[in-house]
Structure formats: structure tokens, C-alpha cells
Design a protein around this nucleic acid. Structure first.
Length: 432
RNA sequence: GUGGCUGUAGCUCAAUCGGUUAGAGCGCCGGACUGUGGCUCCGGAGGUUGAGGGUUCAAUUCCCUUCAGCCACCCCA
């Protein structure tokens, strides 16, 4: 038997599953608070669904194969193409704006690293059919609220927000020619990971940009804070108009009381070419981990995928980095502590009474366990403690004779004799 | 896919210059404790030192290969 799961795939032990369920519950809670509806699609899709968006080079990063019907198929690496198809099929019927979310398990064939596996779960949350910046603010706020509901504050996570339209206007104003915009974007994207002189060298080699322009282009990526962005925008043609969506979006987040989480930072670009406006990422504040979440506006993408021509904004948030952050901040829940009562049989003759009571409590929704073999009371109580049971209910010959039990509060260490009537009532389940 | 670093018990780590039976803490199991848990004390199980090969009288230790993990690149859906 293989000793472990495939590289990049996870076995979920109870603690891991508890954490995953916790994250899923928070994702669903926040999404529903914002009025988003859950959808899902197939984990296996036609390969071409992904090549048409990202080109043939993406095939090397996919789990793909030929099925028995001779179809080229792939495990889904992302949800957006599926979403685009589903929306396109009913585009005319769906009330806009569409607010949908999903919790797909996604796959990619890449060498794994910390926080980056070959399989993960991702909250995908999108607003489709609304071009205005309030939609952008709404999805960013939802991402932040996930962090908040998980117990993370501004000292733990930060949302960094930028806008590609603003970036574009400022770069053009800095003298970057239209065909070189992509190179300038790429350089700014790397501004925090690469030394400045290497980026300058890269930008100026092959005559991409004149040295002075390259300097000014990189300086655009250094602009931080909304006032500074507005200042910079005033100095370029069309600038004041082009910053307006970002100003409104950030203003909306401020009105929601979330500004403590939000940093405007023009070095956020996002790698993908299809982002068309506001883009953002969530980071852990100490910056030890990879991005928790990334997203933005992709107005032309759905049409480009052959679907409906609808503007859209959304994000993906993976469970891996998020889980690591929760563990590092010690706000991850454990799997234990989930029993209302552990029933203790003093002698083998008491077992039928224990079984009867266990079933009665379980029928009422109680979470109940008892020893599956004859054991000393000490052993049974030890197991009860280890299970995190609130009460131990001890049934022995004496208790059966008088028709009750001893209920021991395992947290307080106090116990008392209770009658059968109390047991059938609230003696055990009353404090829940 | 490329390069670098690291692999010892379930977990975190020891083991002198290459030296004879690979240890400790936590966890797990049992006992002290035949009607009372947590604490304490005692005992036990658990290892192909990631795997395979090589050098050597002798390898956890040195060398090669491979696998895995981590880091960087690529990519970030």
C-alpha cells in the first residue's frame, strides 16, 4: 500500500476536515450575507474549455487525458470558463446583476510548494452584469468579511487594491508607448520581488523602453495610497476621469467601515491579461505567505469565451493559504469537544440501560458516545474527557435500582444523582 | 519542466572524528486506580535512519542514483 497520497494531494484527518469545514461554512455564510447564490459544475471538463481561454501552453499545467469516448478532457483548473458557459446558456433569463458563488475543488499539474498544491478548494465569487464600481467594492468587501468572520483583523490581513485603467493612463503619461504597456505591467508586477536595477535592465533591453521612461514607469508602481494616486492622475491626460471608479470603490469600502483593511497600491497588477479594471489581492499582513485571494474586473472575458457580453468582477480564494494563516494565528478550530454526553456503564449488566439512554438522547439530537467494551469507570471517564464530553452519565446497579443515573459535569468536576425523569428532560441536553 | 537546500518514531528533535544495542519530549497503549477523568508516577509498543546502490573492518554520518518535502524560477486560473 502506498504510504501517502500523491504529491500535492491531501488526506484530510479529522482536524484537517474540521478546519476545511470551518472555512467552507464561513465562505457560505459570508456569500449568503451578500445575497450570493451557490452553483457548481463538473470537475471534469473538455480540454478545449481551457485552451480557448489560455492557449495550448496551459495543457502542460493540467491534469488531462483521453476518456473512453475518445474525448480530450481535463480536471478543472479554474471555475471561470464553466461559469461563463453556464451564464451564457441562460444569459437572457437571468436577472442582472448575477451574484453567484461556488466552492469548487480545482486541480493543476505543477510542482507543489507550500501553500500551492496540485489540488485545492477555492471560493469563487462573482458579480456579473454590473459595470459600476460598487460591484467591485462588494466583492472586495466580501473577501475581507471572510477574513473577519474567520477571526482575522487588519493586523492579520490586508487588501491591496489597484486599477489597471489608472495604471495604463499613468504609464502612457510617463511616456510608455502603447505596445510596451504589457512589459511595463509585468515589470511593475515584479516590483517587490526583483531588485530595481534588474527590472530597469529588463525594461530597457531590446529597446523596449528608453531609460528615462523605464525609470518613470517603475515609479508609477511605487505610488501608494488613494491621495497619491489621485495626485498622479491629475497630471496625465484623462487622469481625473479614469481614477473615478477606484475612488468610488475605495470610498464604498470606507463607508462600509472596512478602510482599515484596504491599501491602495499600484504595484498590484495580477498576472492575467484579461483583467480590465480594478484588481485586488488579499495578503497576510506579515507577508510570509502567498496571496490569500486575488481577483478583479474582467469585463471582456465572458464575451471572449464565446458567451454573453456581460461585464464581470470576482475573485478566487483558496483554502490552502487561508488554512495556514488560521493555523499560524491559532484561530483554527479543533475536531474534538463535540460530545454532549459520554455514558458510563459500571458493570456489564448496566449496558442495556446505557444503550437505551444513549438512543433516547440521540433521538433528541444529543451527541452521545459510550464505551464499546467493558472497562473500569476510570477508563471510561478518561475516554469521556479525551472526547471533550460535557457530561459523563454514570449508570450502575445502584442507579438502575432507583431508576436514574449520576450526571458528572466534566468541566466543573461536580456530580449529582438525577432521576429518570430528569434524564428524559434537560439533565444532559438542557444546557446546550 | 529547470536550479538549490533538506530527509532519523505519529509529531518536534538528539546521536562526539565514520565506531559496536539509534535516544528524548509530546502523543498512543497498559498499570498504579475492581464506583470516578484531567494531575502525577511506572511500564510498553512504535524505526528498513525516505528508498536503492557504492566506499569502508564499520555508514544515521562520506559518495552516486532515485523519491519526497521546502525554496527560487515558470505559472498564478
Amino acid at each position: 500500500m502506498p504510504a501517502r497520497a500523491l504529491p500535492g494531494f491531501r488526506d484530510f484527518y479529522p482536524d484537517d476536515t474540521a478546519l476545511r469545514n470551518h472555512i467552507f461554512a464561513v465562505w457560505r455564510t459570508v456569500a449568503s450575507r451578500y445575497g450570493f447564490e451557490e452553483y457548481d459544475g463538473p470537475p471534469l471538463e473538455p480540454l478545449e474549455l481551457y485552451t480557448q481561454k489560455s492557449g495550448p501552453e496551459i495543457v502542460g499545467q493540467l491534469y488531462h487525458f483521453r476518456d473512453r469516448g475518445d474525448r480530450e478532457v481535463a480536471l478543472r483548473p479554474e471555475m471561470t470558463p464553466t461559469l461563463a458557459r453556464m451564464v451564457a446558456a441562460r444569459a437572457r433569463a437571468l436577472k442582472k446583476p448575477i451574484r453567484w458563488f461556488s466552492l469548487p475543488q480545482l486541480f493543476r499539474y505543477e510542482r507543489q510548494q507550500r501553500g500551492r498544491l496540485r489540488e485545492h478548494f477555492q471560493l469563487n465569487l462573482d458579480v456579473i452584469g454590473e459595470p459600476g464600481p460598487l460591484a467591485d467594492a462588494e466583492v472586495i468587501a466580501a473577501a475581507i468579511d471572510v477574513a473577519r468572520l474567520l477571526g482575522l483583523g487588519p493586523q492579520d490581513v490586508r487588501a491591496r487594491v489597484s486599477d489597471r485603467q489608472v495604471l495604463r493612463a499613468l504609464l502612457l503619461g510617463a511616456g510608455v508607448a502603447e505596445p510596451s504597456l504589457g512589459a511595463a505591467f509585468a515589470a511593475i508586477d515584479k516590483i517587490e520581488r526583483e531588485p530595481r536595477d534588474r527590472l530597469l535592465t529588463w525594461l530597457t533591453e531590446d529597446g523596449k523602453l528608453p531609460a528615462g521612461v523605464a525609470q518613470r514607469a517603475l515609479a508609477v508602481g511605487d505610488v501608494k495610497g488613494l491621495p497619491a494616486v489621485q495626485d498622479a492622475a491629475r497630471k496625465v491626460p484623462g487622469g481625473p476621469a479614469v481614477v473615478e471608479p477606484l475612488v468610488e470603490c475605495v470610498g464604498a469600502l470606507e463607508a462600509m467601515g472596512l478602510s482599515a483593511f484596504v491599501d491602495v497600491d499600484l504595484c498590484i497588477v495580477r498576472g492575467l491579461a484579461y483583467y480590465s479594471g480594478i484588481v485586488f489581492e488579499l495578503f497576510d499582513a506579515q507577508r510570509n505567505l502567498r496571496a490569500i485571494c486575488g481577483g478583479g474586473r474582467y469585463d471582456g472575458l465572458l464575451a471572449a469565451l464565446g458567451g454573453a457580453d456581460l461585464p464581470a468582477v470576482g475573485f478566487g480564494m483558496g483554502d490552502v493559504v487561508l488554512g495556514e494563516l488560521l493555523k499560524a494565528r491559532a484561530v483554527a478550530p479543533g475536531a474534538a469537544g463535540s460530545l454532549d454526553a459520554f455514558l458510563v456503564a459500571v458493570t456489564a449488566e448496566d449496558t442495556p440501560a446505557v444503550l437505551q439512554l444513549a438512543h433516547a438522547l440521540r433521538d433528541r439530537g444529543g451527541r452521545v458516545e459510550f464505551s464499546l467494551k467493558e472497562q473500569s469507570i476510570a477508563k471510561q471517564l478518561k475516554l469521556a474527557s479525551a472526547r471533550g464530553a460535557r457530561f459523563a452519565v454514570i449508570i450502575g446497579p445502584e442507579e438502575r435500582q432507583r431508576g436514574g443515573a449520576v450526571v458528572r459535569d466534566l468541566r466543573r468536576g461536580e456530580e449529582r444523582a438525577v432521576s429518570a425523569a430528569e434524564l428524559a428532560g434537560d439533565a444532559v441536553l438542557g444546557g446546550r
